[in-house]
Design a binder for these strands. Sequence first.
DNA 1: TGTCGGATTGGCACCAGGTATCAGTATGAA
DNA 2: TTCATACTGATACCTGGTGCCAATCCGACA
Lengths: 197, 197
Amino acid sequence: MERMPKKQRHQQLARLIEENPFLTDRELTRLLKVSIQTIRLDRLELAIPELRERLKLMAERSYDPVRSLPLHEIIGDILDLQLDKSGISMFEIRDEHVFSRSGIARGHHVFAQANSLAVAVINDEIALTASADIRFIRPARLGEKCIAKAYVRSSGAQKGKAKVEVFTYVGDEMVFQGNFVIYRSARAADEEGTGEA
Amino acid sequence: MERMPKKQRHQQLARLIEENPFLTDRELTRLLKVSIQTIRLDRLELAIPELRERLKLMAERSYDPVRSLPLHEIIGDILDLQLDKSGISMFEIRDEHVFSRSGIARGHHVFAQANSLAVAVINDEIALTASADIRFIRPARLGEKCIAKAYVRSSGAQKGKAKVEVFTYVGDEMVFQGNFVIYRSARAADEEGTGEA
DNA sequence: TGTCGGATTGGCACCAGGTATCAGTATGAA
DNA sequence: TTCATACTGATACCTGGTGCCAATCCGACA
């Protein structure tokens, strides 16, 4: 009936906007060889908002402090935290964490989870990793949920150095183990845990 | 001279937009009790773009795959790579890598650079971190460029385990040192280095 | 063959949130 | 008084749309 079936054009339109949300209707006109009205009818049917709305949504998503910070802050979701004692976090291995060929997680992601937790469990305004001795027991794979458990072996509230041991499991299999030495600013903070890592 | 000194209003304006980039000029009119023309003159003087440009910039920033997937692939830019011998990479500490309060880089980013390099320098199809013994000598800070140098101490092409030593410097100061043991799939790959880490 | 209906296109009014420019007013200092 | 600076108002114009109506195309079906 048409030069190109409507369904197919809809798919193309959706794909184009998915790939590049910055396209105006006018630019889409060029790419799909239909009138601007058709583009707009298509967007309407597909419930794709106009360019400015799309940009606004993206800006809002990236601006949401809860969403934008955790990516850079703590790696993994804290499930339990007993300051200066122990903590548990969960981290799911996703596509972006693995070697594409083998589906095995890059070591630094597993380390990042453990490191984040080791720092978070220290009840202090400033806590920095001083050194660590780590073992990757077996590879963590795509889709696996890593449960890291941290135990503060010596809080070092006076000496300024805490020792934290972290074990990471997938199910009941240990995948990672690390001994961390964490610098702390000596005076333990009165405040609640900071959420930083 | 004015109800409120211009300088002060400029500060307030900048702060308001910083806090909430979604404000229109009309809304700012209400908040600052000046005409919309004044708001626009102010924005001009302060070089603050219009709402739509601000949203577009935010959307672009959050869309940039390099920024949004910070821990995915190799961390740091490979400057030099001699497979099974040595390698050098550079990694600049940005906002998203530091504790906001102290401006000090989170340990796992510095580790990720070293780990990426240690894996990249191994000339094999599959290379995984088995264990590591690491020291954070001094904190790396916002804006600093970390230069990591990796040396393969024993390639372990037969035994399946390579030893790689990594030193990371800012200028001539060492910030990090680590000894990595890397599993490799025994048969050294004929291909070029993979680019994965 | 005519006609019906969905798909497509064109045109126009209108909108938000601006830019650019010009003119007028207020206010304080020299 | 005069002058500069700050502020305000008004108008034309821009982009990237929405909303709506009419015209056209094109294939299917009686």
